[in-house]
Design a binder for these strands. Structure first.
Lengths: 66, 66
DNA sequence: ACACAAAGTCAAGTAAGCTTTACTTTGTGT
DNA sequence: ACACAAAGTAAAGCTTACTTGACTTTGTGT
């Protein structure tokens, strides 16, 4: 699952730590998601959508894998 | 996290087992999600959105709980 | 009343998301 | 070259998503 978190952060000049704070998760969690270690939970995806004022589908890309 | 799976199934006359098959999860997983035992993963939410041709936000409702 | 399909539920196990702590790497400014 | 901030990574532990198997409950048709 790809995502645009890095870009969205860059647009706002946010660090991974800043985003972690906004989403109420650890910095490592943001890093792991950005680097593709695992997918966020659905609740976390909703939070991200709220923070960036975008739809989940506009942040995360399913790319139909298995 | 609330969801409209039961209604969407009803519209199509699908059983929980039918939906489970379509989403490639167990029947118990569908039941647990419908009855609020736990939230689906993001990939599963994407699959549901694809199957029903809706946006994730139109199927699942975050309802801002902590 | 009986049979059957669908839904609900429980237990035990595996896998994935997330935490904390701690360390290394990369990039930038001075 | 040095210092510092940001990013990356890793291990161990906890929680949540999901599995299989088995059983109970509910609803419908006959």
């Amino acid at each position: 699952m790809k995502n645009r978190l890095k870009v969205l952060r860059a647009e706002r000049n946010w660090t991974q730590a800043d985003l972690a704070l906004a989403l109420d998760v650890s910095r490592q969690t943001i890093n792991a998601i950005e680097t593709g270690k695992f997918d966020p939970s659905l609740p976390l995806a909703f939070k991200a959508a709220r923070v960036f004022q975008l739809r989940i589908e506009d942040i995360f890309d399913d790319e139909e894998g298995a």
